[in-house]
Amino acid sequence: MPETPQNTNLPYAIRAYSPERLREALKKMYLVRKFEEGAEDSYMRGLIHGTMHLSIGQEASAIGSTMALTDEDKITSTHRGHGHCVGKGADLGKMFAEFFGKETGYCKGRGGSMHIADPSKGNLGANGIVGGGLPIAVGAALSAKRLGTGAVTICFFGDGANNEGAFHEALNMASIWKLPVVFVCENNKYGMSTSTERSTAVKNIAERAAAYSMPGVTVDGNDFSAVTEAVDAAVERARAGDGPSLVENLTYRWRGHSKSDRNRYRTKEEINEWMGRDPIPAMAKLLMEHHIITEDGVAAIEAEAEKIIKDAIEFATNGPDPKVEAVTRDVYTTEATA
């Protein structure tokens, strides 16, 4: 939760969060980055057989958007959801174990990269269907309202999903019922290969909020503080019972859509330009500028993150494979009906 703002000239994040939480946020951004780099490396070594959707370059959006959430709050995630998962407090070992298809993974090897989630921390699942999580997030918000839990749901989705019918139906219902949900659009400019310019009638996706009578803002998604400022305000509004909001985080994925991407739709220059706006050094710089951490401290956090990833990969590698005969185990809650 945001702390008492004192010096309004300071960036929002510095005002709102303790140094400890900010250092933790930086560590999480490193963890997301290194998890995905580790995943990519494992893929290239032939250690895993599925594809993956990497969010390298989008870490500020994922970690910044989840700063104000507790374990009671919910999120719905996307196919590019490793960052949301870490943001919501998942254990890296179980994430890697799932990535390796192990029984010790979050989904016991049934989900894989696209569905890694820790429901016990309020993550309702990463969704393989573009827009699939939008109505589900509204349903979670409906539960919170009906049951009076005070929980807020953050619904992550990409720019591609804003052209799905589910997006419009979900925003409309959230609005008419004034539900505690924040729609966070991670606009990385491309739905696979199709740019938002080619796919979307409005310039900024946040403009669509107007159609559903809710606030909509567009922020620099690589600026950790800007992200937290916009999302935290929306979360606060939701928690206060004032209904949903739409926040658009403009960001960029460095890698292709998935491992099959031959990258024919964007230029080297564009990619290089965005790589120059890496959110992690920017975050480190912000913290150093405000004496929250030293350069050595940053190096130590990075090293710590690397160690966690190394241990996580070891944990995952040593984990047991799922038993083939138990493959249908979790189709139904009651075994007898399976």
Partner: peptide
């Protein structure tokens, strides 16, 4: 109307809201 809820004519969205609600403590 809170427990007997009219939905908009949004079958996809409505069904999804029901799924989300079912995942989080309600029995729609």
């Amino acid at each position: 109307t809170d427990r007997v809820m009219d939905t908009p004519i949004s079958e996809l969205g409505g069904a999804g809201v029901a799924v989300g609600a079912a995942l989080t403590g309600l029995k729609p």
